[in-house]
Amino acid sequence: MSEFLNILKTLFLLIFFGNPVTLTPSPVDMEAGSRLVFNLEKSARVIGGAYLSIDVTSMRPDHVDSWEAVEAWDDEVFGESRISATLINTSTGEKAKVDHSSILSYNDTTSRLIVKKDGGLERGKTYDMIVVETDVELRGVTMTWNSWSM
């Protein structure tokens, strides 16, 4: 019975808190060594597998059109880079950090960097500010915070 209740609880959390949060409704540029601060209208609650998604499709050259070419491009452009997001609960001062871990999600139409914490973030915590920092130039990217993943 407790497993069933856990499934119901997770489903409830996904319905009410699981929607992705668009941080940049239009594309933005970030210089190497810069940061962007996002004050969230609605607090983001960590459900499980939370991550920042950065759509870098606009940066991908046209000739990079196969998985092997995308992997090589990812290594060349983002391989040694540091991209992080610090989540902050401004009421309590509590902070959590996720770092770029060289995960690039790719299909024929999109390329996304997945910025997450190894081992995941603590479930149930809420944050109302996200600070994104990068040491690599980002051009024409959009960012989305996701409170959960499978």
Rank of each mutant, 00 (worst) to 15 (best):
Met1Ser: 11
Ser2Trp: 01
Phe4Gly: 03
Asn6Glu: 12
Ile7Tyr: 02
Ile7Cys: 04
Ile7Phe: 06
Leu8Val: 09
Thr10Tyr: 02
Leu11Asp: 06
Leu11Arg: 12
Leu13Cys: 07
Leu13His: 04
Leu13Glu: 13
Leu14Arg: 13
Ile15Gln: 08
Phe17Ala: 11
Phe17Pro: 00
Phe17Arg: 15
Asn19His: 10
Pro20Glu: 08
Thr24Pro: 03
Thr24Asp: 06
Pro25Gly: 14
Pro25Ile: 15
Pro25Cys: 15
Val28Ala: 08
Asp29Asn: 15
Asp29Thr: 11
Met30Asp: 09
Met30Val: 10
Ala32Asn: 09
Ser34Pro: 08
Arg35Gln: 13
Phe38Glu: 14
Phe38Ile: 15
Phe38Leu: 12
Leu40Ile: 12
Lys42Met: 02
Lys42Ala: 06
Ala44Val: 12
Ser53Asp: 10
Ser53Phe: 05
Val56Cys: 08
Thr57Trp: 05
Thr57Lys: 07
Thr57Val: 12
Ser58Asp: 08
Arg60Cys: 07
His63Pro: 00
Asp65Ser: 15
Asp65Gly: 13
Ser66Arg: 12
Ser66Cys: 10
Ala69Leu: 13
Asp74Pro: 02
Asp75Trp: 15
Asp75Asn: 14
Asp75Ser: 14
Glu76Cys: 10
Val77Glu: 11
Phe78Ile: 12
Glu80Ile: 08
Ser81Val: 09
Ile83Gly: 04
Ala85His: 06
Ala85Ser: 11
Thr86Gly: 01
Thr86Asn: 01
Ile88Met: 04
Ile88Asp: 02
Ile88Phe: 04
Asn89Asp: 14
Thr90Tyr: 04
Thr92Ser: 14
Gly93Phe: 07
Glu94Cys: 03
Glu94Leu: 10
Glu94Val: 11
Lys95Met: 08
Lys95Tyr: 00
Lys95Asn: 02
His100Gln: 07
Ile103Val: 15
Leu104Gly: 07
Leu104Val: 15
Leu104Asp: 01
Ser105Glu: 11
Tyr106Val: 13
Asp108Leu: 05
Thr109Arg: 08
Ser111Lys: 12
Ser111Ala: 15
Ser111Asp: 06
Arg112Gln: 10
Leu113Val: 09
Leu113Ile: 11
Leu113Gly: 07
Leu113Asp: 07
Ile114Trp: 00
Val115Pro: 00
Val115Arg: 03
Lys117Gly: 02
Lys117Asn: 06
Asp118Arg: 04
Lys125Arg: 10
Thr126Gln: 06
Asp128Pro: 00
Asp128Cys: 02
Asp128Gln: 06
Val131Pro: 01
Val132Met: 10
Val132Thr: 06
Thr134Val: 07
Thr134Phe: 01
Thr134Ile: 02
Leu138Asp: 03
Leu138Lys: 07
Gly140Val: 12
Gly140Ala: 10
Val141Met: 03
Thr142Tyr: 04
Trp145Ser: 07
Asn146Ile: 05
Trp148Phe: 05
Ser149Asn: 12
Ser149Asp: 12
Met150Ala: 06
Met150Thr: 07
